[in-house]
Design a protein around this nucleic acid. Structure first.
Lengths: 208, 208
DNA sequence: GTCTATATAATGATAGAC
DNA sequence: GTCTATCATTATATAGAC
């Protein structure tokens, strides 16, 4: 990302809003605090964006564009993994937290994107099911949505993860450690199918 | 949970705060809205709890107590799964969202609890590693923390999950469907170890 | 214990000068 | 384009009557 001094005031405001919405959420980020971080007056923020809600819409549109662009750039690349690993992790990292926060702050634009990511994950799981011999306990749809929410839990709780792990998971080192652990998690089971069947029978006694 | 009419005003305020903090977060929940939901005046809320921050502390303590109690009650029960499945799911369900939200709203009490749950999950993963023949890509610690964050992503994004799945995942039916999908996810891999190794080599070329 | 009324501070929105 | 000054609203906090 370019030197803040090189950006127009409008762009600096957008960047500051992006950072604060991601960091503390829409409610807690105030027009004044955003303007202060951007080095401008609250009046100028209003001049450029009109209202706090309109500012959020502008940042949403910007982030969605950037995510889509990073996605397109990498779409022809390796097909090794899912959404999270097939696209350029580094390009998306700055937007992960913003995106995840937006899901909790009630941004309509971002809610739509969640559905799209869940659909992509569902397709990916459907493909993985091809190599399975046993019958899945639920359809692709349910597991796709759940996996999407689970993966998004990581940027959402990055603060606590970083504290527990003793490394900023948004840094290069931390992100690599997370990526490595995700590969291990994706490629290994935690419980045996027998144990899962036992638990299933306990939860759902009717269907043997 | 008992009829709201049977509760003291203090308890009704606590319940209303619990619900609103979980639903809309600490910032967006106002003293007025909480008092209104509890059917009392804002003044009475202050009389009982002193400040909004003190109210949060009180609700935190209450929730932590309830979670611990449910945990203890089930600790002697089946050892089939992890934290999420070994304790009484039904007993914890009302507190899941509150707990997850608190992690984003900066509640210190809840941050400590996250560490404890991560530690429990780490132990659980360490046990699962006993049956593994290959070398894990990361230590128990990293995977335990990640799994904890991932599982908490589900109550955090319950609104979006419910929309995508077409069922309220906090209802009995929805929760059962989620539990079933989790069992499947826990007991099946998404990518082969070969694919994971390929991706690892791409990310970490130095270590063969 | 419970309420009404009010003080104080913070926030989003606005107007107008440069 | 950018700022300062100000308004209107809303939030928390407080005081005191019943």
């Amino acid at each position: 990302m370019p030197d803040p001094d090189d950006l127009t005031a409008r762009a600096r405001i957008r960047q500051a809003a992006l950072a604060q919405f991601a960091d503390v959420g829409f409610q807690k980020a105030t027009i004044r605090s955003i303007a202060a971080e951007a080095g401008v007056s609250p009046g100028l923020l209003r001049h450029h964006f009109g209202s706090k809600e309109a500012l959020r819409d502008a940042v949403d549109a910007y982030v969605m564009d950037e995510i889509r662009r990073a996605n397109d750039d990498a779409s022809s690349a390796s097909k090794t993994g899912n959404f999270a690993s097939s696209v350029d992790r580094d390009a998306l990292r700055p937007f992960q937290r913003y995106f995840a926060r937006g899901l909790l702050d009630g941004s309509p634009t971002i809610a739509i994107m969640f559905d799209q990511i869940a659909a992509m994950t569902t397709q990916w799981i459907a493909a993985a099911d091809e190599t399975r011999t046993d019958q899945p306990l639920t359809d692709h749809h349910t597991r796709g949505a759940l996996y999407t929410a689970m993966v998004l839990g990581i940027p959402l709780l990055h603060e606590h993860l970083s504290r527990v792990l003793g490394v900023d998971i948004l840094s290069d080192d931390g992100d690599r450690r997370v990526a490595m652990a995700m590969l291990d998690i994706y490629s290994h089971v935690l419980i045996s199918t027998e144990l899962a069947e036992q638990a299933r029978a306990a939860l759902y006694p009717e269907t043997p």
